[in-house]
Each structure stands twice: as structure tokens, then as C-alpha cells.
Design a protein around this nucleic acid. Structure first.
Lengths: 188, 188
DNA sequence: ACCTGAACACCGTTCAAGT
DNA sequence: ACCTGAACACCGTTCAAGT
């Protein structure tokens, strides 16, 4: 009663690409061409198929963008977990990732990414922990949100070139980290 | 020696649209359809011409988007200038504008807007003044950037639905305003 | 001097036909 | 069971021709 495929596991025409291939190609395009360059056709070309074939692996372009955003978030999460765990080094990891992968960073924190909120919160848990250590468990969440909001806002404006007038951007970052840490400590 | 047009100021075929018409239509589309709906064809239809005619008034779509962003920024600027001038009311105006015109708000603080940096800084001058009043003139710019970064980051994440898990968003905003004000005061 | 249709090079997406 | 070309409905943009 075996079907044609059940015994060897072979299928009539095995897929030429995996979802991982597609997401990897998507990330490369995001890095090099920006979000506008993350097209179905460009991804298809990179993985060696025609655009319609991608629909065997992703629902539509939004779905692809979400998968790429998830991969970027995982990468950011790893970078944050690598550090010393204190708020300053986590903030630095945050900004380093943004400088290394501006398009990926902007995607993760935009509405376009359609990231699952629980997944996002889980990914930034090192930040939450660091804030809890400073602000105390009672205000940990609010403190983490205040710091995340400041960091994402700062970096977004920096990447948009909106901090190019007057003053040193690195100094402004240090000023912010310093002041925010104090502010969060003050909420204890 | 007068040419056909010099005497009366009439031209062979006077323009059916003004740049104001175009920008107004663009803002309406941005509000109702989002940035993706701000297309040359949709704007053209709204103002009663065909898409190619728009190129008599704007260089290209990027130019149109920039003009719309400038109009949104002017509107935000007015709202900030209307209040009592203190930091809390300015921050509230900021967030109110974002809730009323989410797509416009996101555009203004994205790289896509291509806004002139000097124009942006000028528009947020009420915020700068309020920060200077609290932080003192020495750290006014850094303080204003810290607060602007936090506010834009907070609102961006709020609009992206990234604050939907746990806790009250309004409370988180109040917490931030409170803590940031203290933080900036502490830099004096 | 503006407006237009037609054209071109792109998109995303669907689907019948090929293997 | 995947892959494909062809098709469709959109984009932005150019340009010769109409008025």
C-alpha cells in the first residue's frame, strides 16, 4: 500500500531550495539593497528559481519579510546575550548591530516586520534583566521599555541622519545611557 | 516684442493643478492608505490629472514624499507651539499628533522622508526650549535629543504594536516623561 | 505650456501546463 | 510535487504627439 514516495522518502521532484536558503538570500539582499531591494524576484534569482516557486515556501512577500525580520532579531538577540550582561554593554550591542545591519535593525523595529510581540519581548530579555537589576523588579518592565524606546529612537534618528547637526553623536549616546541609567535607578 | 504670454500673464494652457493641491492630496492619501498608498497614480486621480502630469510639479515620487513629510512636520510643529510650552505638554502634543496621523508621524521620523535636518531641528525648537529650561543651556541640545529619541522610539514601538504585552501603555508613557524629566534635570 | 496615451521596465501574484 | 512561462493588475517614469 506504499505510495510512490513512502519507501525511500524520495519525491517526484525534490525541492531545489529550502526555506533557509530563501531567508538567507533575503537577509543578504536586505543588507546590500535595503528593504526595497528585498523583492520576490531578487530572492528567487539568488536561490536559483523563478519567483512563482517561492510561493511553495512562503505565503506571500509579507510572510517572507516577517521571516527575515525574525532571523535579524535572533541575530540581535545573540549579540546582546554575548556581552557582560550589564545595561551599558547591552546598549552598546544594540547600537553595534544597528550600525552593522541598518536595514535589518530598522525592519525589526518597524510595523512592517509584523513580528510576534511575545517573540520580540523574549529576544530583548537580557535588556529586561539588566533593567530589573537596576530599577528593581517592581519597575523592571517600565524601565526596560523606557530604555528600549530611547535606544531605538536614538538609533532610528541616527540612521536617518537626523542627528547630523551640531554635537557629537557618540557623546549624545553616552549622555543618554548615563542619564537613563540614573533615571531608572531613581525609580527604585 | 511681447511674446504671446507677456501682456496678460495668461499662458497657452494654464495648469489644472497647483503644488498645494498635490501635497494636500498626498497627505490625505497618507492618512487614509498609509505610505504605500501614496502613489503617483492615486495622487493624480485625486487632483484630476494623469500621473505623467505630476512631473511638471515634482521631480519624482521621492520629491513628492519629501514635500508631504515637510507639510506633516509643519503641522506637528504648529501643534507643539500651541501648548503651554512646558516639556510635559509638548510631549503630549507629540504623542497626540502621532495617534491622529500615524503614517505622517512615522514618515517624518523615517529616513524615507529625506527631510532637511535643519528644518527638522527648527520644527522641534519648542522642545529644545523646554529642555533648555530644565537642563540648562549647557546640555540643552543633548537633553533635547535624549527626550526626542525616547519619545519617537516610544511612539514608533507603540504604533508598531510592540508595547501590547503587559502593563498599561499610558502609564509607561507617564513613567518615561517623569523619569526623563528628572534625568535631564540631573544633568544640570 | 501643460496634458495625454502609449510604452517600458519593474513589482507581486495566480494558474494551467510541463516534468 | 515542484517548477515554469504566461498572464494580470499594479507600480514609476519617459516621451512624442495633441491642444
Amino acid at each position: 500500500m506504499a505510495t510512490v514516495n513512502s519507501y525511500t522518502g524520495r519525491v517526484p521532484t525534490p525541492s531545489k531550495v529550502t526555506i533557509d536558503d530563501i531567508v538567507t538570500a533575503g537577509r543578504a539582499l536586505l543588507d546590500s539593497e535595503g528593504i526595497a531591494g528585498l523583492t520576490m524576484q531578487a530572492v528567487a534569482q539568488r536561490v536559483g528559481v523563478r519567483a512563482p516557486s517561492l510561493y511553495k515556501h512562503v505565503v506571500d512577500r509579507d510572510d517572507l519579510v516577517r521571516l527575515v525580520a525574525e532571523a535579524e532579531l535572533a541575530s540581535l538577540s545573540e549579540l546582546m546575550a554575548d556581552g557582560r550582561g550589564d545595561l551599558r554593554s547591552i546598549a552598546t550591542a544594540f547600537r553595534s548591530f544597528a550600525h552593522a545591519h541598518p536595514a535589518g535593525y530598522l525592519l525589526v523595529f518597524s510595523a512592517e516586520s509584523r513580528l510576534d510581540v511575545a517573540r520580540l519581548e523574549a529576544a530583548v530579555s537580557p535588556l529586561l534583566d539588566a533593567c530589573a537589576a537596576i530599577a528593581g523588579p517592581e519597575h523592571a518592565l517600565e524601565a526596560a521599555r523606557t530604555l528600549t524606546a530611547w535606544a531605538t529612537g536614538f538609533i532610528t534618528m541616527e540612521l536617518a541622519g537626523q542627528f547630523n547637526l551640531g554635537g557629537d553623536v557618540d557623546d549624545a549616546w553616552e549622555f543618554g545611557v548615563e542619564r537613563l541609567t540614573e533615571a531608572i535607578r531613581g525609580s527604585r
